[in-house]
Nucleic acid binder design. Structure first.
Lengths: 111, 111
DNA sequence: GGTAAGGTCAACCATATGGTTGAATATGAA
DNA sequence: TTCATATTCAACCATATGGTTGACCTTACC
C-alpha cells in the first residue's frame, strides 16, 4: 500500500478514524483526549492515530510529555480530486456534512 | 461495516478497484472485458466487482450470458460531501484527475 | 444434443486489520 | 527521589482481505 490514495482511502474507511478527524476539525488535541470518547483502549487509538499520520491526514507534535494531534486537511486533496473526476457534484453541501458529523460523533464508541 | 461511508471508502482503497471505476468511466463493460487488462484471475475481478456493487459504486445487469457493469457515480456523493467538509478545495481540477487516470490505468496489472 | 464461453461458488492460503493486555519509556510534579 | 501521567511497544488473538484453484451453472452456438 505505497500509493498515497490507497493510504488515504483506507484511513477514511474506518468510522473511528473518521470520527477522530471530525473531532480534530474543532481543535488540536492530545492523544489521551482524542481517546476519551471512545470505548477502546488508548493503545488502539494510538494505532489509529499512527495510521492517520502515515496517510498524512494528521500531524503529531510532541510537546513535553503530551503529543498533540493536528488535522492536515491538505492530505485529502488528492483523494478529493480523484473523486471529483467522477462527477457531477453539488457545490459543497455543508448541511449534509454537519449531519454526517452529528451521526459520527453521536456515539463514536460503537462504530 | 454497515455504514455506507465505510463501504465506499474501503472500496476505493484498492488500486485495482479504482482502476476498474476509471475504466467504467469510458463505457459500460462486461466482466470478462473488465478483467482483461489485469494480471489476476477472473474470479478475483468478479469479487472486486461484487465489492464495488455492494458499495453502490457500480450496477450489474445480466443480459444473456454476459453481465454488464455500469458506473454509478452517485454513490460517491456522500463520501465527497464528507471530504468537502474538511476543506478548502480548489474548484474541480480535471487536469489533476486526468493525471491520476493516466497513472492508474497505465499498468493496472501491478497495483 | 454436444461443446464452448461467461461468471460465480467453495475451499483454501497468506497476510493485513483492529482490537486486547501488560510491560516499557519519557516527562512532569511533589 | 518518588510517584503519577502520557504514550508507545510487543505479543497475542479473531476476523477480514485479496488472491488462488477447480468444480459448477447458465446461456449461446453448431
Amino acid at each position: 500500500m505505497t500509493n498515497p490514495l490507497d493510504q488515504v482511502f483506507a484511513a477514511l474507511a474506518d468510522p473511528t478514524r473518521r470520527a477522530i478527524l471530525a473531532m480534530l476539525l474543532e481543535d488540536d488535541m492530545a492523544v489521551t483526549d482524542v481517546a476519551e470518547p471512545f470505548a477502546m483502549s488508548l493503545a488502539a487509538i494510538s494505532k489509529h492515530l499512527q495510521i492517520l499520520a502515515e496517510a498524512g491526514l494528521i500531524a503529531q507534535e510532541k510537546r513535553g510529555r503530551v503529543k498533540w494531534c493536528k488535522l492536515e486537511p491538505d492530505a485529502l486533496r488528492a483523494a478529493s480530486v480523484w473523486m471529483q473526476g467522477f462527477g457531477v457534484f453539488d457545490p459543497v453541501d455543508l448541511d449534509a456534512f454537519e449531519r454526517f458529523l452529528a451521526d459520527e460523533l453521536a456515539d463514536p464508541s460503537s462504530p
